[in-house]
Write a protein that binds this DNA or RNA. Structure first.
Lengths: 145, 145
DNA sequence: CTTCGTGCAAAAAATTTGCATCCGT
DNA sequence: ACGGATGCAAATTTTTTGCACGAAG
């Protein structure tokens, strides 16, 4: 487990007047454990239970919302169904290629944002973050539609 | 309404053995009318009713799925709640800046994909499409977190 | 001791499905 | 006619909320 991640997350929470409960800690630890991968609310819930039995699903959702607002995690929806979440990792910013068939994901280290930021500066938006996802079919599912 | 859009969509449907029902036509027309903007399933449903009363919500969803699979529309989720959809417009490919507070969107004409495609070519994925979304706060909602 | 967080249960929201029937092709 | 498409109603899935109690700072 990456201790510096944990520390900085806990500090960010404290700075925003959020308390550090065992449940919240367990949720964060599970997220850190999944660094670099997406995780669904359900999987997060199940895995968190192993660290702190008696954590409620609603607690997981409530925390996911807080962490999303604090820009500690990113929330995404792959095509259908439930949302998936990923820890924002400041020392390895990346994006994903996602298989539309099986949901398999692969990391892209490249990020287009710096090039584009110049073009966009004129807009009346204060940018905070971005999402860049490539879709296609992985070798197993490969089929051109 | 852009007739060429309609024609090419209808041809694509026919080519894939889908029939052209009044409901489906109404849904497509509504989507074309919203070209360049996102629309939710609910809004699409309501607007479609005006073209063809007695269209069911489930019919809308079923068609959205078909159109998504045929790459005629894009499905996206902005932060919370329901998915939003947008017609894929081949002669004006673009992306969005989205306000995290009020959901206001603005179009970015720039697209990073061509630059990046070179970097990614090695991956074992057959790319079909991509999503690039910038998030931030619009001038009205502006607040640095 | 004050405020935030939690569990529980219930509700709401969003989307999907089964089935009988209907309608394009 | 055949096979896909629809309406209706009901079920599922996902997420949110109210409330009383418990715990962190």
């Amino acid at each position: 487990m990456d201790m510096s991640d944990r520390k900085s997350i806990e500090e960010k929470l404290k700075a925003n007047n959020y308390k550090l409960t065992p449940q919240r800690r367990a949720i964060i630890e599970t997220l850190i454990e999944h660094k670099g991968r997406f995780i669904s609310a359900e999987e997060l819930y199940t895995k968190t239970l192993r660290r702190h039995a008696q954590t409620d699903f609603s607690t997981v959702y409530r925390n996911l919302e807080i962490l999303d607002n604090l820009e500690i995690i990113h929330k995404t929806n792959i095509k259908n169904g439930a949302a998936i979440y990923e820890l924002i990792c400041h020392n390895s910013h990346h994006h994903h290629i996602i298989c539309k068939e099986c949901g398999k994901t692969e990391i892209i280290d490249a990020c287009p944002i710096e090039e584009l930021i110049k073009t966009i500066e004129t807009k009346e938006f204060t940018l905070t973050d971005h999402k860049f996802e490539l879709y296609g079919y992985c070798s197993k599912c490969c089929k051109k539609p």
